[in-house]
């Protein structure tokens, strides 16, 4: 599997470590009254879709950037790759 890195071009999947669902970017507010329940869902529960899945990949043996890879779990086809820093910056701006 080749990962089209936004800065470095296509890179072999073995250079990466997979962290899982990109929802991990959205850490719950620890001060919220229902924080315990939200953290349980955040840490343990997953949508685990059969189809398009947004996930975090860490370029461990490369430039050590975090990527948000949008990938089809039925075909392994990669639909989009973004820098995780861009994704969270965009989210901050829209907040």
């Amino acid at each position: 599997m080749l990962i089209p890195h936004p800065l470095l071009g296509p890179r072999d999947a073995r250079e990466f470590t997979v962290m899982g669902d990109a929802g991990m970017i959205d850490r719950p507010d620890p001060a919220a009254p229902d924080a315990a329940d939200r953290f349980y869902e955040y840490v343990y529960l997953r949508d685990n879709p059969a189809g398009v899945h947004r996930e975090l990949w860490f370029h461990e043996y490369g430039d050590r950037s975090w990527l948000v890879v949008t990938r089809n779990t039925l075909t392994h086809e990669i639909v989009a790759v973004e820098l995780a820093s861009d994704v969270s910056a965009k989210r901050e701006k829209s907040r």
Binding site: D21, Y44, L45, R46, D47, N48, A50, T73
Partner: peptide
């Protein structure tokens, strides 16, 4: 293997990845 897909039909999210 397909637990998340089947249980999602009952409205449940599971502590599982495939």
């Amino acid at each position: 293997g397909s637990s998340s897909r089947v249980m999602a039909m009952a409205g449940l999210r599971l502590p599982i990845e495939s």
